[in-house]
Design a protein around this nucleic acid. Structure first.
Lengths: 146, 146
DNA sequence: TAGCAATTATTAGTGTGACAACTAAAATAG
DNA sequence: CTATTTTAGTTGTCACACTAATAATTGCTA
């Protein structure tokens, strides 16, 4: 491979990831969802698998633990989730959706899907398959110590 | 297209972009480059096209202006770039590399290329072409007001 | 030419990301 | 059963992203 050519991907990747996030965030703001993209991602995971410990939730969401702690703090302020003690291990805290939280996920899910789909105009099923495969390969290539 | 399936890409995209950045940052730290990935990106652009105004530099780097202002502040502290006044427009400030900055770019370029290549193990030239095309398509799809 | 609009850069505020250091509790070794 | 190590979570610090608001300057227009 010619090196120079291949060092540009990181710019495109970063730029596109930010654009996707920013587009969705702007749509959330316009529709008064009163929640950020990252907060949404966490609610969505909890909706499917609830309760979960901080550690498991962080792993599932692909965030580190300090970041997760802070996002959960914000979600608690908004009364969308609760922290409850783990029955067997007093180090652990489990997170679960509140009634409000469940309702929020159910209300917003269709609109979020609509927003997310916008990215895939002019692209095919095959493109989607390529894209996810390549992203996962890159992730795994770098998912080791230097 | 089936919507549910296609709403997952944003998670993978975000996760991979963060991993790429974090991998490169860890490599920078290990080699004592004393600079962040985003700071590097700006130095690299300036090396090819120097001087540039804040506005043009922000656009070229895909960053917004407040972010750029702060990164430039940090680069000035490290004495890698300088701000100079625009000859014709006193609103504008132009940024140019210092001697140190130029030297830094020349020293680090090969090592950075090496680090960036790691992501492409197990992938082909064709994958690269797909990947950049799809990223650009997504970017353009979302590069309009909601 | 005086007044208003557009442009360039900065500052403030909030949210997120990475890393290091810390506390508390549990697991394990001796 | 005590002492050490490991694990779960939090806090602190710095860097970056996005929005809104602001200051300074320029350009336009009446």
């Amino acid at each position: 491979m010619l090196k120079e050519k291949y060092t540009q991907y990181s710019f495109l990747l970063d730029r596109t990831a930010r654009r996707v996030k920013q587009y969705a965030q702007a749509a959330f703001a316009q529709k008064d969802f009163d929640i950020t993209i990252d907060q949404w991602a966490i609610l969505k995971v909890l909706y499917n698998d609830d309760p979960m410990t901080h550690k498991d939730l962080a792993e599932k969401c692909g965030k580190d633990q300090p970041t997760l702690t802070r996002i959960i703090d914000l979600l608690i302020k908004k009364e969308l989730v609760q922290r409850v003690e783990h029955p067997d291990d007093r180090r652990c805290l489990q997170i679960m959706l509140s009634g409000n939280g469940k309702q929020k996920v159910e209300e917003l899910t269709p609109a979020v899907a609509e927003i997310r789909m916008k990215a895939w105009s002019n692209l095919s099923e095959e493109d989607f398959a390529h894209f996810t495969r390549i992203l996962n390969t890159i992730y795994n290539n770098l998912n080791q110590p230097i």
